[in-house]
């Protein structure tokens, strides 16, 4: 219990503020988590050029080797996330992209013509265009 100027703050005020804040944090964690917004990622779709895409489940860790136009691309699936760990291209954009962990995330090695994309139960968007 203390005062600022002639405004009185009581312990109960802080208890109220604390409980309301924790309620808000709980609400954020329910309605704003990536799972509720985008659904759970379930499979990794790997595609080379115009060939049929292959789906890999995300629940088993594995290393996937894909032969592309220039050489091999190596993709890693670990703990529900996926990334390029090696690519036979010059710029290595796909490797620098890092982990994909949200449904709809995708990355591609254009020179090597290999692209990967996370799929889930609900797919919030088809594609996102942007620049780095």
């Amino acid at each position: 219990m203390f005062t600022i100027g002639n405004i009185l703050f009581k312990t109960t005020d802080f208890l109220i503020l604390l409980s309301v804040s924790s309620l808000i944090i709980w609400l954020y964690s329910i309605f704003w988590s990536t799972d509720t917004l985008y659904g759970q990622a379930e499979t990794l779709q790997v595609q080379y050029y115009n060939q049929v895409a292959i789906d890999y489940p995300l629940d088993t860790d594995r290393i996937i080797k894909v032969e592309g136009s220039l050489g091999s691309s190596i993709i890693e699936i670990k703990q529900g996330k996926a990334r390029f760990i090696h690519s036979s291209c010059r710029n290595q954009f796909c490797v620098f992209h890092g982990w994909l962990n949200i449904v709809g995330d995708s990355t591609a090695c254009l020179p090597n013509r290999v692209s990967i994309r996370l799929k889930g139960t609900l797919n919030p968007y088809d594609a996102i265009a942007g620049s780095q």
Partner: peptide
């Protein structure tokens, strides 16, 4: 809730009431 005399000293101030 804070009406009983032994709880009255814990009554929130205007700020607590305003947040609620």
């Amino acid at each position: 809730l804070f009406y009983p005399h032994y709880l009255r000293q814990y009554q929130p101030s205007a700020i607590g009431y305003a947040i609620l």
